[in-house]
């Protein structure tokens, strides 16, 4: 017994990180890996909720074949708009977030009040907030059209096929930009002063300061934010689910909504939905891997 305990202590000395990491690793194994394996297994069958175990048959890769052969109508379109939404949405959130952070970083009174306002969208429950947006976007009785009509005399059909994508984008940007803003503002606060002072002595203008000092110093933080936002944008669900339910037509049927439509609610084709989920997971992994590479490179460089 004593011998074993010595051995154990030696091992611990060699790998001191183990007791720190173990609890997290166990929890994540249970909550992440297990469902992941499960989803993959289901994606190989024609499983539906309510079908007896005997009626489930193993289909091999046929669910995947359906997806990639274009037999599943609108699948490629879903992938396309999901990626497009991610790129566009992340870009807008990062740019707007940076602008707001720079504004916040100015000297002015009542800064606390402004930050409090920014916390509101973060704190609002997404499922309720999107319902309110739906009410505001209503083309006949919405407050947004009420304002637009008062100014221009025209109205916009916010939830029609042409504008639904834009509406989802607006609500998403509203809800998640403040998080980016606060992170970037915090970053700006902690920047060292000395490089700025010497650059000002050299006669640099504001844009040059931003371009050559602020951006490089914040690069990692920006990339981390962008990475987190891109992943969340690809998985986007709550807001389009409430606002448009994927419609009209397929205008806002993002991959996550397509999964939900196929696997839950009225349709209940869990096997097919799982195959799509696996595709989504692979897609998100590839994109996050790529961004992570960029991050690591910039860390080393």
């Amino acid at each position: 017994m004593g011998k074993l305990s010595v051995q154990f202590q030696n091992r611990l000395r060699k790998h001191p990180q183990v007791p720190y990491i173990l609890p997290t690793a166990i929890v994540m194994l249970l909550l992440f890996i297990l469902p992941l394996v499960f989803v993959f297994l289901i994606s190989l069958t024609n499983y539906r909720l309510g079908v007896g175990l005997d009626d489930i048959s193993f289909l091999g890769l046929s669910n995947y074949k359906r997806l990639f052969s274009g037999e599943e109508s609108g699948f490629y379109y879903s992938v396309f708009i999901s990626v497009f939404f991610m790129v566009l949405g992340t870009l807008i959130q990062m740019i707007l977030g940076m602008i707001c952070a720079l504004l916040l970083n100015q000297r002015f009174r009542r800064k606390g009040l402004v930050i409090a306002c920014l916390i509101v969208p973060i704190a609002m429950t997404p499922s309720i907030a999107s319902q309110i947006w739906k009410l505001m976007f209503n083309s006949e009785f919405g407050v947004i059209n009420y304002f637009i009509e008062a100014v221009t005399g025209q109205t916009v059909q916010w939830l029609s096929a042409d504008y639904a994508f834009l509406s989802v984008l607006i609500a998403t940007v509203w809800q998640y930009t403040p998080f980016v803003t606060l992170m970037l503002y915090a970053g700006l606060c902690s920047l060292p002063q000395s490089p700025y002072e010497s650059a000002i002595l050299d006669g640099a203008n504001k844009w040059q300061l931003f371009r050559h000092i602020t951006l490089p110093l914040l690069k990692n933080l920006i990339l981390l934010c962008a990475l987190m936002r891109s992943i969340d944008m690809l998985k986007t669900f709550d807001i389009p689910y409430v606002l448009t339910q994927g419609g009209p037509g397929n205008a806002t049927r993002f991959l996550s909504l397509k999964i939900y439509d196929t696997g839950f609610g009225e349709q209940n084709f869990v096997g097919r939905a799982s195959a799509m989920a696996v595709v989504l997971i692979v897609l998100v992994s590839l994109i996050s891997l790529a961004l992570f590479r960029v991050m690591n490179k910039s860390k080393e460089g």
């Binding site: 992941l36 499960f38 969340d232 999964i259 696997g263 839950f264 992994s285």
Partner: peptide
């Protein structure tokens, strides 16, 4: 970071 990729709709069942 990677754990974030798991969509809720995929893991719920």
């Amino acid at each position: 970071l990677f754990i974030r990729i798991l969509p809720a709709v995929a893991s719920i069942i």
